[in-house]
Structures are given as structure tokens and as C-alpha cells.
């Protein structure tokens, strides 16, 4: 065994070494290995990713609602001219600090909690959190009880109050069920790396919205979160949100 190495042996050695290096890389930063390779369409999502957003309220421009328009367009969120009952997946909120009078503005949508109250209260399990952190409504199970809307601290959800036709193929929606921001799940499943709202914000030149993988230490969002201050809305509730804000 201690003689000269045959070509086969050296091949084996290199092969085993390679596996070792691969394993080391996988253990050292398991996430990178996963991200490097796009998920194929028949592969299930895993907890190796957690999708989230970082929103810089300082860059959210006055009078701009490009993100809202893009979301409505992307997901076919059409209204009936009845603001009380029409769905809103994303909205802009203007804030004024009572003590100082400072004003700011931000887009508000489903915060994709790690511990979502809507999922806790849903009687049928229609509200659920996907392994990669996206909180969704399975409209096949939704009976329209609206308990999730009572439970959501962010008013992120809308109930569909009337018949809808000609839906977008990527965003099925129908009367009598509840819906909210899907974090453009159909884009993520295709391997895309941005949401419609981020694209619109970037295109408008504001760059207030950044989408990415919170579990990938090398993603831009993780790097910024590691180096810049950010907050979670109603962080006191301990829900560990996927959407973080800066400047409030």
C-alpha cells in the first residue's frame, strides 16, 4: 500500500480531496453552495433561503407610487373604483412624528413574519409560511372567514369582495378569499432575483427597495443589514419580520 501511486490512486486522492473541499465549503457557508445553483422547477423550496426586503424610507420619494402601480400590474390587482373594498397588496404610508414633526414615507405590505399571526389563527391552514419564508394564502383552502385580517398587525391583507375575471396567470385571485403580497413568488420560483416593486423603484431612480436572501451572508441585503441600522415595524411583537426598514 505504501508504494508508488498508480494513476488510479492519484485520481482517487484528488477526487476525495475535492469532496473534502466541497464539504468544507458546504459546512463553512452552506448557503452559498445553495444559491450558486438555481433551483430547478421540480425542486421544492427549502429553509436554506429566507427571502426578505430592506426599505430605505429616506429614499422613498414624495408623491411617488411606482411600486404600487408595478405591483398592481404584475399581479393583476385591479379595482372596481371602490376604495373601501378594493384590494391593496402594497400601499404608501406617510408618517409624521408627533414629537418632532419629522415626516417620512414608506411602502407597506405583508412583512413576511417568521411567526405570522395570520398563520396562527387560520382555521384551515390556508395561511401558511413557505420554507423559504414567504407567507402566502392557499386559496384552495381559504374559506373566507377573515380571521387572518383581524390578526394581522400590518393590515397587509385584503378580502376579495367581488367577482374577478381575466386574472394574471401568475396570480390567481377570486371572490370570497383573502390575499396579500406574495413577494412575487412566481418570479422567485423562476429564479429571478427582484420583485416588481423593486424593479419599479429602481427604474424610477429611487432605489429605496432591496430584495434578497437574508440567509445568504454575501447577498447585498445581508451585507447592508449587517452594517447599517434597520428596524422592524412593531418589533415589540417579536414576529421577526422579513421586511426591514431604515429611517424610522
Amino acid at each position: 500500500m505504501s508504494k508508488e501511486l498508480t494513476p488510479t490512486d492519484s485520481y482517487r486522492r484528488r477526487f476525495l480531496g475535492g469532496i473534502g473541499a466541497l464539504a468544507a465549503a458546504a459546512f463553512g457557508s452552506g448557503v452559498i453552495v445553495n444559491v450558486a445553483r438555481a433551483r430547478s422547477p421540480d425542486e421544492a423550496v427549502t429553509g436554506n433561503q429566507r427571502w426578505g426586503m430592506l426599505i430605505d424610507t429616506g429614499k422613498c420619494a414624495d408623491g411617488c407610487d411606482e411600486c404600487v402601480k408595478a405591483c398592481n400590474d404584475e399581479n393583476g390587482v385591479t379595482g372596481h373604483g371602490r376604495p373601501e373594498t378594493d384590494a391593496q397588496w402594497i400601499r404608501t404610508v406617510t408618517l409624521r412624528e408627533k414629537a418632532t414633526g419629522r415626516t417620512t414615507k414608506l411602502p407597506m405590505m405583508c412583512q413576511h413574519c417568521e411567526y405570522p399571526p395570520c398563520v396562527d389563527v387560520c382555521p384551515t391552514g390556508a395561511s401558511f409560511r413557505r420554507d423559504d419564508g414567504i407567507v402566502l394564502v392557499d386559496k384552495h383552502l381559504c374559506i373566507g372567514c377573515r380571521y387572518c385580517m383581524m390578526a394581522c398587525p400590518y393590515k397587509a391583507r385584503s378580502f376579495i369582495h367581488e367577482v374577478i375575471m381575466d386574472q394574471k396567470h401568475n396570480a390567481p385571485r377570486g371572490k370570497g378569499t383573502v390575499e396579500s403580497c406574495t413577494l412575487c413568488v412566481h418570479r422567485i420560483d423562476k429564479g429571478e432575483t427582484t420583485t416588481a416593486c423593486q424593479d419599479a423603484c429602481t427604474k424610477a431612480g429611487h432605489n429605496a427597495i432591496l430584495f434578497g436572501d437574508l440567509k445568504d451572508p454575501n447577498s447585498e441585503i445581508s451585507k447592508r443589514l449587517a452594517n447599517e441600522p434597520s428596524t422592524q415595524v412593531r418589533g415589540d411583537l417579536g414576529l421577526n419580520l422579513g421586511v426591514r426598514y431604515q429611517g424610522i
Binding site: T92, T94, R96, E97, P153
Partner: peptide, 10 residues
């Protein structure tokens, strides 16, 4: 949602 802030939205 934002204790200490006045809010306004659509």
C-alpha cells in the same frame, strides 16, 4: 402600527 407617529395612506 407606528406608535408615536401620525400616519396617512390610501
Amino acid at each position: 402600527m407606528f406608535p408615536g407617529w401620525e400616519v396617512q395612506s390610501s
